[in-house]
């Protein structure tokens, strides 16, 4: 029998819970079912088949796209987290007042003009772009650089920029939680700043690093706008194909099989990252 408190809590949470159940869990279940169906020109064939999965897991194009997406997302994650760490460190250890204001300023770009921000990277990295004209104006280069646009590099730069704010927050929170007296203790016991950082600060910040790694890695695999706008032919990702199959190519079952397969791979990698990360940072908990 449920306690009074348990009943009240469940009653209160049931509207948002039912909403998530009906509009998230149920659709995901339908997607999985769908991936075992097949498309017969305009009709859906609802006999269960592994045809879509066979296609996804054997045809080279899918492997290429999935591997490239994972590769891009991992690069983005590594860059974003590495660059975010000093920023989070700065916020936690150097900023004394107005921490909230700094964090607010960092998160603003994350909320605004998603499409246009990506488009503007095209303007920055393009042939006549901001970067090229600046470098040429300064006399560093004679001809515009072309290797920075319409390829994987451009996708990585743009995505890393878009997700930067999201990576800072968990690391910042982990750093904030560090008991400052531990740092003093390390110093008193003879650790220099570098040693102290690697032996005390970094291990204690690992849960935050882990959280931001996953927070950036998982959503970026599914982006199709960035590759489409700045990726060129060689920078397309798996989500672009999913989008095409849903739209023009009209093969929803294959698209869902592709989506389910990608999510399974992403989830497995995330679990591995999580376990490895826990082991590294595990001693601190």
């Amino acid at each position: 029998m449920l306690s009074r408190e348990g009943r009240q809590g469940l009653t209160l949470i049931s509207p948002p819970f039912l909403y998530a159940l009906l509009l998230l869990a149920a659709p995901l279940a339908v997607v999985v079912t769908f991936s075992f169906w097949s498309q017969n020109y305009l009709d859906l064939d609802t006999t269960l088949t592994l045809k879509n999965y066979r296609e996804v897991w054997t045809k080279p194009i899918y492997r290429v796209l999935i591997l490239r997406s994972l590769n891009i997302s991992m690069l983005v994650t590594v860059f974003t987290v590495l660059l975010a760490f000093p920023m989070a460190y700065f916020l936690s250890f150097r900023v004394k007042q107005n921490k909230a204001l700094w964090l607010f300023l960092i998160t603003i770009p994350f909320w605004t003009s998603y499409l246009l921000r990506i488009f503007l990277w095209k303007v920055i990295l393009g042939y006549n772009g901001v970067l090229n004209s600046a470098l040429m104006g300064a006399g560093f280069i004679d001809e515009p650089l072309t290797f920075i646009m319409y390829n994987v590099t451009a996708v990585v730069i743009t995505l890393a920029h878009a997700w930067a704010p999201f990576a800072i927050l968990p690391i910042f929170v982990a750093l904030e939680r560090i008991d400052r007296s531990l740092l003093e203790a390390a110093e008193d016991l003879g650790d220099g700043p570098v040693r102290r950082f690697f032996r005390v600060t970094l291990p204690l910040a690992m849960p935050g690093v882990l959280a931001s790694t996953l927070l950036v890695f998982i959503p970026t695999v599914g982006d199709f706008v960035t590759p489409r706008l700045v990726g060129g032919k060689d920078g397309l990702m798996v989500a672009n194909l999913i989008q095409v199959y849903f739209g023009k190519a009209n093969n929803a079952p294959l698209a869902t099989a592709l989506a389910v397969s990608s999510m399974l791979i992403v989830t497995s990698i995330s679990v591995i990252i999580f376990i490895v990360g826990r082991r590294i940072g595990g001693r601190t908990r």
Binding site: I13, P16, F17, A20, L21, L23, L24, A25, A26, P27, L28, V30, V31, F34, L214, L215, I218, P219, T220, V221, G222, D223, F224, A239, I242, Q243, F246, A252, A255, T256, A259, M263
Partner: peptide
């Protein structure tokens, strides 16, 4: 379950709702 859309790629949310 309520918080998971925070981390789920948006294309998955969009596609799954569309299929439903």
């Amino acid at each position: 379950l309520i918080m998971v859309p925070l981390i789920l790629p948006e294309i998955i949310v969009g596609v799954s709702l569309l299929v439903l």
